[in-house]
Amino acid sequence: MSSSVQAPAIPGIPAGKVGVWWFLASEIMLFGGLIASFIVFRLGSAGWSGEAAHLSLTIGAINTLVLLTSSMTVVQAFAAAERGHASTLQLFLGLTILGGLVFLGFKAVEYTTEIRAGFTPASGIFWSFYYTMTGLHALHVLAGVVVNAIMFAGARIRNPRRVELAGLYWHFVDIVWIFLFPLLYLS
């Protein structure tokens, strides 16, 4: 029983990794569909640049910097896990979690400012897309923080594979933001 569970789904590739990539594939379809719909609406509608001008470019840029940096720290955590350095692993996982929380904090400030200025999800198609895409992404960041916190708590177990798989998800969240930032804030 246990040997069949632990056997690789495909020779040379651990089953867990295949599973995470399949999950990420479904996530690509989810965000890909949203982004494709946004692009089509954006190209077919005038005045969206004016709406986007109400967003805080500074906060968007800071959050991009934070997520890019946290992607680097989570992969450093994986490298530390492979070397068996539990304290370094915890340090980098802690920095990654901190990055996620900073991102969510700035996002909360941004949402508060925008809603107080009267820009709600009901304020138009741009704002509907904005809150849907960034809200869904923020939920993914929150899930990533929880997953990394679980890795942090179990750092002494020294299982690099788990850290790698958790990192794959975090990098995906980073890549989604890499496209959301220019789509919403820069174009």
């Binding site: 590739i13 295949v18 990539w21 594939a25 379809m29 890909g32 569909g33 982004i35 692009i39 089509v40």
Partner: peptide
């Protein structure tokens, strides 16, 4: 793994 990652990207592009 490339295939698993790229096929949904292609689907999203086709959708657009």
């Amino acid at each position: 793994i490339y295939a698993i990652a790229l096929v949904p990207v292609l689907f999203a592009l086709v959708l657009a």
